[in-house]
Amino acid sequence: MNSLRRLVLDVLKPLEPSIVDLAQVLATLEGVEGVNISIYEIDHLVENAKITIEGPEISYAKVEEIIAENGGAIHSIDEVAAGKLLIEDVTTPQG
């Protein structure tokens, strides 16, 4: 059963399509309740985006497909939360 609740991705994408379009398309996916995209580095033709997606049943395959068709490449999966509850990262003495 798919129970992916949060995904935080590091994505390299061309400037166009813009993050406005990308966020809207991602938000229309079934099982997604909200999307946040923030740009932390911008270059001449491309930008690095941190994409945060939350919802009760996120499909990673669909998210990956949409990012790819918009010209983006997932560089890393920085955070994943799955299950019945959304668990936040716990601070430990190690960090």
Partner: peptide, 14 residues
């Protein structure tokens, strides 16, 4: 653009 993204963009919207 492909050089900048380091991936093929032929099958993308672009």
């Amino acid at each position: 653009l492909e050089q900048a993204t380091l991936s093929s963009l032929r099958q993308t919207k672009i």
